[in-house]
Design a protein around this nucleic acid. Sequence first.
DNA 1: TTTCTCATGTAACGCGTTACATGATTAC
DNA 2: GTAATCATGTAACGCGTTACATGAGAAA
Lengths: 182, 182
Amino acid sequence: MSIKYVILGYLSWKPMTGYDVKKLIADSETLPWSANNNQIYRALVQMYKDDWLTKNIETQIGTPNRHVYTITEAGRQALKKWAGAEPELPQTKNAFLNQLMWADCLAVEEMDALFEAYLNVVGEKIFFIRVQADEKPNMPERTQREEYIWEMIHKNWISHYEMELDWIRHMRQKLSKMQADA
Amino acid sequence: MSIKYVILGYLSWKPMTGYDVKKLIADSETLPWSANNNQIYRALVQMYKDDWLTKNIETQIGTPNRHVYTITEAGRQALKKWAGAEPELPQTKNAFLNQLMWADCLAVEEMDALFEAYLNVVGEKIFFIRVQADEKPNMPERTQREEYIWEMIHKNWISHYEMELDWIRHMRQKLSKMQADA
DNA sequence: TTTCTCATGTAACGCGTTACATGATTAC
DNA sequence: GTAATCATGTAACGCGTTACATGAGAAA
């Protein structure tokens, strides 16, 4: 997967500068990038060279000039092609599961503290995803279908993390029962 | 997260060569590494230098000598420390969700094909995780607790992917209904 | 005869991250 | 007076990947 298409996607809403795109990516609680300049500005330059974007430089005094990029027809076609491409598996790195693999050396209280800590980080994440959904950026007019899709993407993330919570709670209960029985 | 601790974890079962560890990682359907030599052999050398491992070289004729690594007490302590460390959020890169964000340009049949394809890749993944669970590697004797934990890790992955399936099916149905109503 | 297993390692490269650099304006 | 916002970009680095390199013995 490439961040290129995410940038291109946002530019399909309206012309923007790298700085604008950066903010959109940074504000997202679910996009898997930290919105660093290095990637975004390079990607814009590359897509400009590939004629996926046109550039309009607005000269300013004091601050750096704004490089406003606009998606071209070729850009829209590249985006569409990518949107319909063969889907990949989601790739999850769950360090917590790897910790658990070797966690049997921990005492009962230590493991319980680990569960508690995991509940906290996941719970917080859910909270922030919900907050972000309420503070939606300026979106263009959208079809009913697109609105539904975005809602479902949001639900996908929420379900993902809530499953973690249920899973941990279930495990914790079972383990404390095993402990009590022994 | 570091692959170091996964290697260390396997070595806590029994002494092994890099080649052995590589196979264990490669056979795993859920560990997020492709088991490449570059990482594994380097990690072993580094952990040996840090005195987390000792090395015993078994000379052979014809094939390269076997470098058998054994975990030390310092190694076990490092593993335990890591196992009890502050858990991180799982980091998921779901390219499919990013595709969907800009998929409204697709025709109804194209989007349906996309859903079908995603159902397939996720379904296959579930299948392979189940297969791998049946062909367990030679594991050491384990406590009841550890066995339960490993079972729950397995369930975590399965639930994760089955949630994807449910989610897609639900979405697909809803979208075809929206299509019919319009 | 070709492929697989055993067994070690290196080279080149891509993607992503943090931190650095500059500098005016506006808000607290 | 300090911090955030606007706005562009570069440098250094880490982690991970594929591919390369070698070479014997066993299996298909």
